[in-house]
Design a protein around this nucleic acid. Structure first.
Lengths: 228, 228
DNA sequence: CTATATTTTTGACATATGTCAAGAATTGCA
DNA sequence: TGCAATTCTTGACATATGTCAAAAATATAG
């Protein structure tokens, strides 16, 4: 009984087969995400997924030749779904770059308040630390978000160099994602999310607008005295 | 062969027993952290820990009556070690609240560049999502850091209300932790950490100093138009 | 409807895991 | 040194896991 609240998973198309085959294929992946979210990767066993699918474990081996294969398809589907979500989130934004930035920040933070995202990403980060393919999927996912920030920051402050823009994008994106860890679904500071959202929008918008070209070099030079 | 680079784990004292018993006890916990970091919780099995300890699996059952027990002791030891680290990091700071803030931020970010911390925390976050005891340990760990930020921000901007201070502390702390996810050990933006560190110090220091009392209420009121 | 292609179950396999009891080995005190 | 308390190994157990082959069930084209 998977109940995913982010946009439907994006599946790599299945070659040949009956309609029922495609259903089973997608059901397995959707259920696998659900199990991953609800119980963590440690307890994401083939038998558990199969039981929640209403099928037997052996049938999963028919669709995926190994568990590793299933996990790969899973990661690709997740990455693809967030790609679609980010596109949608930034598509309807007006010409105003300020509202584009606040809209993107707000979208990511709102998404972080869902159980789905809040529980899923620590699993992805953990997987990425021990599996190169998972790392690649996560990196690509964040690179796409990074690119969106980069574009918007370029509009907001055209005087900045590409390097400065990139640092700012990384800074803002990672900060925003960190907020989800502390104020996401079920987290200790969950109730503060609305204020955090507003604070983040104000703080980062101001910072981007007031950033001066050469900031990057300046900061690099001053890094030595800042280290403990 | 555990090689932990944060301050030595803090163990709950062992009642009675020989010196060798204390050694074995600590060795198991240190090795368990090492396995957790290197292979993830999924592969942190008693036999693996035992092998790396140079002992047999059965012996772990002598020290810990169940794996759950071992994990609890582990989480407490980790939480305690970071408590000590944070105390040390902020102890030697001069009277200047500005350098206190940059020093604290820099310490946390520097710590995030270690394999230890960078690989450990996603495991802790994942555990916390599925185990109340783990959640409690992680919450306490971050509450202590939050308290340090709160104190420093109070010195930097005494006009702020307790609520405003708390929101700012949560905002900065979570942002900083997020940077570790993106630019920590082995991460995609690892090379940008020095610039991110400088950027974070500048951005947050300015933001705290320029924050006006009542910020909290203002932000709360404006949150509606910011939501997507 | 029939025949073929596809999906699913069944049942087993090798291996891995947490746990435990009994006995051997070690430690440290008298 | 002797002896009791402690530590450690051995070997087993029940259960769980990923995988697979063969048979059964289902779907679809002709």
């Amino acid at each position: 009984m998977p109940d995913l609240n982010f946009s439907v998973l994006r599946f790599v198309p299945r070659e040949g087969g009956y309609a029922r085959g495609q259903e089973g294929f997608e059901l397995i992946l959707k259920t696998a995400v659900s199990v991953l979210v609800e119980h963590g990767y440690k307890d994401m066993t083939l038998r558990r997924i199969a039981k929640e699918c209403g099928m037997k474990a052996g049938n999963i081996s028919y669709y995926f030749k190994s568990k590793d294969d299933l996990v790969r398809a899973l990661l690709q589907a997740i990455s693809g779904s967030y790609e679609a979500a980010i596109s949608e989130a930034t598509a309807g934004a007006g010409a105003d770059p300020e509202s584009k930035l606040t809209q993107l920040i707000s979208f990511i933070l709102q998404d972080g308040t869902t159980r789905q995202t809040s529980y899923l990403f620590p699993e992805l980060w953990s997987l990425a630390n021990h599996d190169p393919f998972a790392k690649q999927c996560v990196d690509e996912l964040y690179l796409r978000e990074h690119r969106r920030f980069d574009e918007i920051i370029g509009e907001l402050n055209p005087a900045l160099s590409a390097d400065d823009r990139s640092i700012l994008s990384t800074f803002i994106l990672s900060s925003i994602e960190g907020i989800g860890v502390f104020a996401g679904y079920g987290k200790y500071w969950q109730d503060a999310m609305p204020q955090l959202q507003a604070t983040a929008c104000r703080c980062f918008l101001e910072f981007v607008k007031s950033a001066k070209p050469g900031v990057d070099g300046t900061l690099s030079a001053s890094k030595l005295e800042l280290k403990p």
